[in-house]
Design a protein around this nucleic acid. Structure first.
Lengths: 282, 282
DNA sequence: CAAGAACGTTTCAAATCTGATCCTGAAAGT
DNA sequence: ACTTTCAGGATCAGATTTGAAACGTTCTTG
């Protein structure tokens, strides 16, 4: 069966308020389930231990002990369970099912984002001298997308990694006046962690976009935006991350105001001029 | 004060389960608040009328009537569409507005896609020898994303354009047994049209993903999938295209079946092996 | 205007949720 | 062996939630 975080996400909609408090604190740091007692988890979530006990039974475990044992096992084989394996059992996903899942992802994600988190991130990005967009592996397309939006609003957006250049050399020029957009949806790599750590060490602002399952290393990021990515089909969905990025960049543009507007118009004008020429692939 | 959706988002965490059911159904179609009665909204959400009444009072309205009146006013105000220039006047697009817009995009898009269109595209892609993913300019991130999904399912996925290579030379090897995924959301370039034309001339299957505004060049593509991309903020939304791509690739994976599964597991295995080494940026 | 329908509101009892308290058992210390 | 301690489980009473039904109100229709 699934691991603890997965079980929580599965039945999240059905949880009561106190149970949701439990669920949230656990999703923030799933590893704690293995370390802490159910009692202290309850304290952490601000609910009674009775609720905690019930909660674990609600997740389908025989009791809190069993849950903890399972959590430990999940951590041991940290190599993640291939969930898509199970999804191949189902014959087909209907368009309706897909739509429902996506809407849920969006709704849950955006509802749960704290606007003051977003505000502080936007402030940092608006003032930043340079912006670094970081996305390894499967996050690379997301990074590309984010950069495409940001470059319309601010002039100096750099991508990591980029075209075979060595990361540390590129990254050496990061300053405290910079802001970093770190993308860690799905498989998170050591390089991402390294870049984020270096960024913090350089006192740069770090906004981290990730999924609900990711453990939160307290001060790894200045702001963490969690997205729900449960897909109905064979793959997880990045719709929520994409949407959050869009909203973020859009808000950033509005926040910056006139300079961003001027920039957008300038770009539009260049497009118009070039359109008269033969090649227009840009 | 805020509009209905905004109020819901504001207190979402505090809602009880039934109230959340109400909240979810409303957030998925906020316009209905103005049209439908509180009673039918309750029915739609699967809760009692009493709950619906309480819910609106919970949102800060004097009663359901008042809420409905407010919803009507919100829609009237929303009627005139702000151009992206005008959007800079507004203080900020609320999370609720953004969410509403995104959900609308998704719903409209996916509902409207004909499943036999999709099926024929999937069939072509399943049988294709090589697959070409084409995305110029702002569609490049989308192309990257599509390729990332497809490469998990089939072995020979090629991207156009790629890293400074000349397009015609690369594209010369297209065959009738190939399939092309053409991405034309937003600004469409001449190069895209050229590539699509060449593809058709080579008798390859062409699936074209674009937005609603695109002109319908009848036989430019074998299958055309239209996405709604109207954004609430400064930028258009690619959530719908991303979602369609995800659904398409997911269905493709399920359609291919065992070989795709084997491939996915092989990839997962390689990931696991490499994870033990230092650098894991792939 | 009267009758009726649809709707929203209120009431109330049942269902559910939740925390305080108590109980059991295991582990560690004496 | 006895005590202590701590975690989990069970119980129960109080609080909250919830739907059914009764009750007004508004609107339509004849």
């Amino acid at each position: 069966m699934h691991d603890v975080s997965q079980r929580i996400v599965d039945i999240y909609d059905e949880l009561t308020r106190s149970e949701r408090r439990m669920a949230d604190t656990i999703l923030q740091a799933p590893d704690l389930v293995a370390e802490l007692s159910a009692t202290s988890l309850a304290a952490r979530a601000g609910v009674s231990k009775a609720t905690a006990a019930r909660f674990f039974r609600r997740l389908g475990y025989a009791g809190a002990r069993v849950a903890r044992a399972d959590a430990r096992r999940s951590i041991d084989r940290d190599g993640r369970e291939p969930e898509w394996r199970a999804r191949f059992g189902t014959p087909r996903v209907s368009q309706a099912q897909h739509l429902t899942a996506e809407v849920q992802n969006l709704t849950r994600t955006i509802e749960q984002i704290r606007s003051d988190d977003l505000d502080s991130a936007i402030r940092a990005f608006a003032l930043a001298e340079k912006i670094w967009v970081v996305g390894f592996g499967e996050n690379y397309p997301l990074a590309h997308f984010a950069r495409a939006l940001l470059i319309r609003v601010k002039p100096d957006i750099r991508m990591i990694p980029i075209g075979g250049f060595s990361v540390p050399e590129e990254f050496a020029s990061i300053r405290a006046s910079d802001a970093v957009l770190a993308l860690g949806v799905g498989r998170r790599t050591k390089s991402l962690r390294s870049v984020m750590a270096s960024s913090r060490k350089a006192d740069a602002h770090v906004t981290f976009i990730t999924d609900q399952i990711a453990p939160v290393s307290e001060d790894a990021a200045s702001v963490t935006l969690r997205c729900r990515t449960k897909g109905a089909g064979a793959f997880d969905s990045v719709v929520a991350p994409v949407s959050v990025l869009t909203y973020f960049c859009s808000s950033l543009a509005l926040r910056i105001g006139e300079p961003a507007l001027a920039r957008l118009e300038y770009i539009s004008q260049i497009h118009a001029e070039w359109a008269e020429l033969a090649g227009d692939d840009f």
